[in-house]
């Protein structure tokens, strides 16, 4: 795989504050990479450094093999950047705004108009093309922003919080559009967000970014494996009763480390929810046992979603920090 963005030991310091600290990150061609982190983690600063919009304190940046401090123009002609809270010239129409961007990228007027029309159609704003941007809703602006990024026919697009302030349906459409773009046109996408679920939906790989440091990087599976270090598999099941015979049978299994039981209301009756930690994945065995002793409603092997991953890392970061402060 060809790397398109390479950051090595990249740092950015403001007066007393380190926004980005010794960041190493490589993004490959054609992938959708999610940069995930809470507000103020240094995501935007990192992007600005990639585009040469702010000076770095130390480290190295290569975008498409070029250093943004020396070849900012070439990089900016191949990388589309959509800032969070994107602004347009409000007194101009949507298509005028797009044509202006296109012409700044050296596209001739006629061609620019054609492409702008196509793109507006693609992002679903064809009807609003000649309306002034001031009348646009938040979601429409974001979609126009996407069109604005695409009109230069970029190799990489960088989207900073693209889903901020859009309704769920709008988010779904936007994310669909993004993953479609990446698949059909082979565009590398760098998506910054603090909405884990959205990132989870579209990203091939995710980087977790906390306080200027990349605490974890990889696909969802790798990340969940990384947290699940004690290598216990948790199996959850819901059964009608929890007889002592089942309990004994379960405890006899050598793979079972611990069992937690909890009775829960199930409609008018009661049922029991079990959470069993095992050293191995023995879901079928447990299912069979449970079915023999009682009525089995549900059984599943618990996997780690991004939510858990996010919590684990960010909480870890916080406790680490409070521990440091206590010292």
């Amino acid at each position: 795989m060809e790397p398109v963005i390479e950051l090595t030991r990249l740092s950015k310091k403001y007066d007393h504050y380190t926004a980005v600290n010794q960041l190493d990150l490589t993004i490959y061609r054609g992938e959708v990479f999610g940069l995930l982190g809470p507000n103020g983690a240094g995501k935007t600063t990192t992007i600005l450094m990639m585009l040469g919009l702010t000076e770095r304190t130390s480290g190295d940046v290569k975008v498409l093999g070029l250093d943004p401090n020396q070849h900012a123009i070439t990089i900016k002609s191949k990388v589309g950047y959509m800032p969070d809270d994107i602004g347009f010239y409000d007194d101009r129409s949507a298509i005028d705004n797009l044509i202006y961007t296109a012409r700044l990228n050296g596209i001739k007027e006629k061609e620019a108009r054609m492409q702008a029309e196509q793109l507006l159609h693609r992002v679903g704003l064809a009807d609003a093309a000649t309306k002034k941007v001031s009348s646009f809703s938040r979601g429409m602006r974001q979609r126009l922003g996407l069109a604005d990024v695409l009109i230069k026919q970029p190799e990489i697009i960088i989207l900073d919080e693209p889903t901020l302030g859009i309704d769920p349906e709008g988010v779904r459409e936007l994310l669909e559009l993004i993953s479609q773009l990446s698949k059909e046109e082979g565009i590398t996408v760098l998506l910054c967000s603090h909405h884990l679920h959205q990132v989870q939906q579209v990203c091939d790989r995710v980087g977790l970014f906390v306080k200027g440091e990349l605490v974890a990087c990889g696909n969802i599976h790798q990340l969940s494996q990384a947290i699940n270090q004690d290598s216990l598999t948790t199996i959850e099941l819901e059964i009608k009763h929890y007889p002592a015979s089942l309990q004994a049978a379960l405890q006899e299994l050598e793979q079972v480390a611990s069992i937690q039981a909890q009775s829960q209301p199930n409609g008018e009756e009661m049922m029991t929810a079990l959470s069993i930690s095992c050293t191995e994945d023995i879901t079928p065995v447990i299912a069979k046992l449970a079915a023999e002793h009682t009525e089995l409603y549900m059984i599943r092997r618990k996997g780690y979603g991004l939510d858990d991953i996010y919590h684990q890392y960010f909480e870890g970061g916080e406790t680490r920090e409070t521990a440091l402060k206590a010292k």
Partner: peptide, 9 residues
């Protein structure tokens, strides 16, 4: 609009 403009080539 400035950040959008400045990220153009």
């Amino acid at each position: 609009t400035l950040s959008r403009l400045i990220s153009q080539p």
